[in-house]
Design a protein around this nucleic acid. Structure first.
Lengths: 155, 155
DNA sequence: GCACGTCGTTTACAGTTGTCAACGACAAAG
DNA sequence: CTTTGTCGTTGACAACTGTAAACGACGTGC
């Protein structure tokens, strides 16, 4: 299963649809509509459009089940999450990514198991970690002089 | 400094512009154009449009400096990063966020200092962490029965 | 004072996204 | 066989994005 490949762009509205299908494993349009309408005030049509677009994007596949279709995800939720997250972090200054991760960890509810896994990942990474990562915000070689990111790296 | 307030949406192209200004602290349109064009094949006009939109969105402010403007950020890079990251994670299944964080930690280059701060944040969080966080993918109370997220919480 | 750059603003336009209503196919009901 | 649902598809349209040309203001040089 491909993991960090570039993912077809998933829009926020599409995420809502995908989450339902990922969570159920697969679903009929009907199911998706029922569930989503408990949360979003969207018309049937809207949701059908989203399903259609997701199929066209290659994120869902359909198989006929008598009268209606069954929608199945073509990428795993994990792959989509990783792709999207990496993409987001690519916008951030390399020097400040750590800070954002700290913020996320402080803010998000995490299970004990999650925390332990995170600790393990960090422990493994620490020995080879560089003293400092370079700022990649500016093109050219002017980082040294003009970048004011450094303050963020050790405060 | 506001931190996790909802941020005016920043598009990818706008991020590029903001990064330069954040990194320099402030900048003239001219500087932004020069620097960005070392990286992106965008015309002057395009970059000017982006600057204009960012001002209109309230993400930049201008002050006159003789002939030209100086653009300054109205939100901190950290605030923007946190806002965007939280928003992204809100799309993800609550049960799978930990997994995504692990992936990010494994993938991103992090400095020793970053790692230590992350470890500290985790250590502080561990004592009160719940055994498991609930899946919030489906509306209604059907989580128990049909959610197949659980496998992800402990594998 | 007049032409010329330099700047920011306005306008433009195609593509994507959010949201729907309407349409056409086809199976179930009568 | 006709009616009535139920489904997926098409068409629509406004808002937002990516990209850029053209325009108008204003200070500078001759």
């Amino acid at each position: 299963m491909n993991d960090t490949d570039t993912i077809e762009e998933i829009t926020p509205a599409e995420w809502e649809v995908m989450r339902i299908i990922w969570t159920l494993g697969q679903a009929s349009a009907h199911q998706v509509i029922d569930l989503l309408q408990q949360k979003r005030d969207w018309s049937d049509s809207t949701i059908k459009t989203l399903l259609g677009r997701l199929v066209k994007k290659g994120l869902l596949e359909t198989s006929k089940d008598g009268r209606s279709f069954i929608y199945k995800p073509l990428i795993s939720e994990t792959a989509a999450m990783n792709g999207t997250a990496s993409q987001l972090f690519s916008h951030l200054c390399a020097m400040k990514r750590g800070k954002t991760l700290v913020e996320l960890i402080e803010t998000l509810p995490l299970s004990r198991g999650d925390i332990e896994k995170l600790q393990a990942a960090l422990a493994k990474k620490l020995p080879d970690a560089p003293e400092m990562v370079d700022c990649d915000c500016l093109p050219g070689g002017m980082q040294e002089a003009d970048c004011n990111c450094k303050e963020d790296q050790h405060d």
